[in-house]
Computed example of a mutant assay.
Amino acid sequence: MLNLKTKFSFFIFFFIFFLFLPHFSLALTAMSPILEIEVKPGESQTGFLKLYNETAADLILTSSLESFKAGDETGQPVFLLPEQKDKFLDWFTELPTEILLRPQQVILVPFRIQVPANATPGGYYAAIFWQTNSGQTKDGSGAGISGRIATLVFLKVAGELNESAQLVGFETIPKNNYFFHFPLNFSVRVNNQGNIHLQPQGQIILSDWFSRKIALDINQEKRFILPGSIRRFDVVWESGANKNFWQNFLAELYLEFKNLPFGPYQAELSLNYGARHQTLTGSLNFWFIPWRLILAIVILIIFLVTFWRINRRVKELKNKLEKLVNEKNQGN
């Protein structure tokens, strides 16, 4: 059994150890997180990656290549296992296997893509990863700076490309015909049926029964859809507040007063994509009934009617009083 003094000594030791133990994380920024490069078969092209060391220590980084594909409909990439790597990764040459970044240093890292003459036109997708060398800093202290970052490379091999897309979904979220408050959310789902990544952009035009029109942009961020995948684009008409009840009520009442949304609406979608500016279209209908605005108008009407009735009653009493005073004066 350890005596009380020994236990206390162990406690002090571990307290000091964990208190002063340095905590490290990878503070490395890829200032070029996405690269889109086009190369003709039989030709090569040089690309550049920009990296920034945010730490106060030297970083030794090693590079690696992985192919990726689309994950879920949000566009999150899924990196393939080493045994699933594609042969096109061999086209990436002259990429340094190891680099040194000084504190606060920004560097450009060159690499070259050599496309074979017999390469099939279309899209090829690779991730260039950078990670610390076994958690070692330049002085070899082994301080645990760990993690990795990636630059996604969207490689287009020029030639006869198949740019084809299908609109597989255009609906409100939730899928209703009647809405009573903001925000109103739309979901646009597009299936890339071609062999090259697409970047559709367009608008949803809302028209009410007064022929007023409101334009909502789709894919302002210019996100890609990879071949053989479906991507969902979320569009919001007037995002609401996220505070307490009364702040939310007043914020949404203001939005309803600003837009005056009431009655039937038609939503018409138009998306353009590809080099030939192909178009996808869709439409849907819904009703918007702004209950806060209606409630406010009803309360205002009740207030005005009540004020008018009170004012009329006060005038009647005033007239009666004046009449009694006049009759009394005439009697005297």
Rank of each mutant, 00 (worst) to 15 (best):
F154V: 10
K87T: 12
E163C: 00
S134F: 06
K85W: 03
P110K: 12
S146L: 10
R102Y: 15
G144F: 13
Q114Y: 11
G135K: 07
A150I: 14
G144C: 03
A126W: 02
T93K: 14
A158G: 04
F129S: 12
I107A: 11
F154P: 06
L95P: 10
I113V: 13
S164P: 00
Q105E: 15
Q114K: 08
E163D: 12
N118R: 03
E160L: 01
L89H: 07
V168P: 03
F92D: 03
S134Q: 10
Y125F: 15
L161C: 08
G123L: 05
S134D: 11
D86C: 01
W91G: 08
R148W: 08
T93N: 09
P116T: 09
V106M: 10
N162T: 14
E160V: 02
L89A: 12
Q136W: 06
K85A: 14
F129V: 00
V106Q: 15
P96D: 09
G122I: 02
T97Y: 12
L101M: 04
L108I: 01
P116L: 11
I113D: 04
E163Y: 07
D86K: 14
V106L: 10
P121W: 00
K87E: 15
P110G: 12
G147E: 05
L167A: 05
L108M: 09
L108P: 00
D139M: 13
K156S: 13
L95C: 12
V157N: 11
P103Q: 13
K87G: 07
E94M: 04
T120S: 15
L167N: 11
E98F: 02
E160I: 01
F129G: 00
Q131T: 09
S146G: 05
